[in-house]
Structures are given as C-alpha cells and as structure tokens.
C-alpha cells in the first residue's frame, strides 16, 4: 500500500482523555497504609471475610463494611494462582517482553481473597501454587498504590 492509498483509506484517531477520579475513603486508607508499609483490608461484619484492597461492599455477601475499622494483612502470603506473561498489552496492542513477567494472585495472611501483584526474584519455571511469598515495599514510600512494589519468595 502506498502512502497516498493509506491516507485515503484509513485515518488514525488517537484520543487521550484524562480523568481525575476520587478514590474514596476505603482506597484512601489503603494507600495511606501502604505509605506506612502496611497492607489493609476490610473485614465483613456478616461473613467475616477480609477483602484486600478494602471496599465498602463485600463482594462475597453484599454487606456494608466499615472504612475506619480496617485490619492489617500480610506482609506474607501464599500464591493461589499465577500466570507468566511473555507479552504486555499496551493500549490494546500486544508487545513482546524481553523478560517474562510473573503475575501472582497472593492470598495474604489474614485475608480471604487474593491480591494480584507482580512476583519477582524467582525463575518463572519455579513458581508454584502454595508458594510462600512476602510483600516488598518501595523505600521510601510515597503514599501511592505503587508503594507495594511486588512480592518475592520468603
């Protein structure tokens, strides 16, 4: 296809909207907790399950949870499920990675549902369900979601 043909047959229209969402009191407390290197979850008053990151409504039984009475989980936990990424999806397009990325669903000690995070410091082929891992925080922290950097084997 020549440049001229390409111009008349398609035009690329990128749009980049920016949204400044409020995170709400639950996630705000969670992020402030990360700033203190603590992982907080909300405990359901009905079913007793601990959900990380905390939220208002328990996804398991629909009860309302308290934003202030958050409980500390981890920093250690167990790999419940994982995938080894050989690609990344960037703006809807597949990009090959030079180094595989391990994504793990970690059930933190004291939590009832898994938290998705990157797992580092282990060969992808050595990752297994049931593996004990611990949270690694950025140092110093910046009161941001990315303060919880990744997990690594205990």
């Amino acid at each position: 296809m020549t440049a001229l043909e390409r111009i008349v047959t398609t035009s690329v229209v990128p749009l980049d909207f920016t949204y400044n969402y409020r995170v709400g009191p639950y996630l705000e407390n969670y992020i402030q907790g990360l700033g203190r290197k603590k992982i907080l979850g909300s405990k359901c008053p009905d079913c007793g399950k601990v959900v990380v990151p905390p939220r208002k409504v328990c996804g398991l039984c629909n009860a309302i949870m308290d934003a202030e009475g958050l409980v500390e989980c981890g920093p250690e936990g167990t790999v419940d499920n994982f995938t080894v990424g050989h690609v990344a999806v960037v703006k809807g397009l597949i990009e090959k990675l030079d180094v595989p990325q391990v994504l793990a669903m970690v059930v933190l000690d004291g939590a009832s549902v898994p938290l998705l995070a990157e797992l580092k410091g282990v060969e992808p082929s050595a990752v297994a369900r049931g593996m004990k891992v611990k949270a690694v925080f950025r140092d110093p922290t910046e009161n941001d979601l990315s303060d919880l950097s990744h997990f690594e084997p205990v």
Partner: peptide, 15 residues
C-alpha cells in the same frame, strides 16, 4: 476498576 486495576496496569483481557 479505574482507581485500582487501571492504576496498577497488571490486568488486561489477556492476563
């Protein structure tokens, strides 16, 4: 979830 999963960038349709 815009304020969590989109911030972390780990979840997408394929992962």
């Amino acid at each position: 979830a815009p304020v969590y999963d989109r911030q972390l960038g780990l979840l997408n349709e394929l992962s």
